[in-house]
Design a protein around this nucleic acid. Sequence first.
DNA 1: TCATCCCGCCAGAAA
DNA 2: TTTCTGGCGGGATGA
Length: 381
Amino acid sequence: MPLSSSSSLPDSSSRHHTYSRKQKSLGVLCSNFLTLYNKDGVDLIGVERRRIYDIVNVLESVGVLTRRAKNRYTWKGFGAIPKALQDLKQEGFSSNFKTFDANSNAKISDEDDDDEDDDGSSNPITGSQTETSKPTCVLKSYTSSKIDNRREKSLGLLTQNFVKLFVCSNTELLSLDEAAKLLLGNAHNTSIMRTKVRRLYDIANVLSSMNLIEKTHTIDTRKPAFRWLGYGENSEKRAAAALALDESRKRAFGTDVTNMCSKRNKGDQICNDANRCMKMQRQIKVENMVTVAVADRSSCLEDSKQGPKSYQFGPFAPVNLANISNSENNVKRVHDWESLASTYRPQYHNQALSDLFSHYKEAWKSWYTEVAGKKPIQQIS
DNA sequence: TCATCCCGCCAGAAA
DNA sequence: TTTCTGGCGGGATGA
């Protein structure tokens, strides 16, 4: 999975239109990164290479891909997420974590006291405003190494620690403030906190676009908070419950911002799972784009096999995946896809994007054959 | 006004 | 030396 930039598309391609940060959000970039199919009627939007690094780091943290070497990544797929989360959970419960009393002024780490880094000062946990229990464990070694200072501040590690806050505890809702304090420390340094909170937003955008978390508010204080959606049996119930809520009062990071039906547009405010799924059909952005090569098909397919039964896929999951074991609907859905594939052939504006689509096509064929047990759709080209 | 987060500079790592 | 990677924070956007 080489990262490569394309210069074939003028940078100005994305600037013929009125600028909108919604179209540039990390969440929609992540969506497009994982998109299998294109869709008509969406303007080309540039993907800046720098943003791809952010997305890749977060995706790697939850097991979707693995960095092999410089400019080389192995795509593992969404089926790898459950295992990655399980690993994070185990890692969290291992010696790397220590428990603390959330209602006390316990610190994140024993080493925080003598840490030279601005992240490493004491970290009092404030009183709670969340309706759920708080994390009972945090990463002990988060600020422990002076040698690997850069790594400590990496988006990837921050992502993993963020996820651990949820998977290693009963926490379902965590306020932004608490998350920042738990993960970043040095709460009294507003400048540093501001910087780190920016990263938290970056992470939240990507995780939200994967449907692993959503942005909401605490019930009592209405402070911004993260709700863990995760995966597994309960995810369906949670999704259903979430749909019953007033969607206008909460917003998923990345999704709403990048969705045309977003609250910010004051238009259609129903941004449900179906909408999220629709995002996967959006336009691939091409400026400095990423081409994806499946370097490890075996692991990918293996993950895919185990995934569907236990994992609630996000908006980028193969659309008919959930229906594989659901025979009746499955027939219809698959038929729809075949119909769609046979009638719709996206037209790309440059070779790089065309190559990317070709890859996705091949990946889809392979997956479809392996998991769905059918011959690949031949019409896609 | 403030929450959100895009953007790109630039330092460090890797080839 | 060149290219890749990604930490970082200024400041724009939108509620």
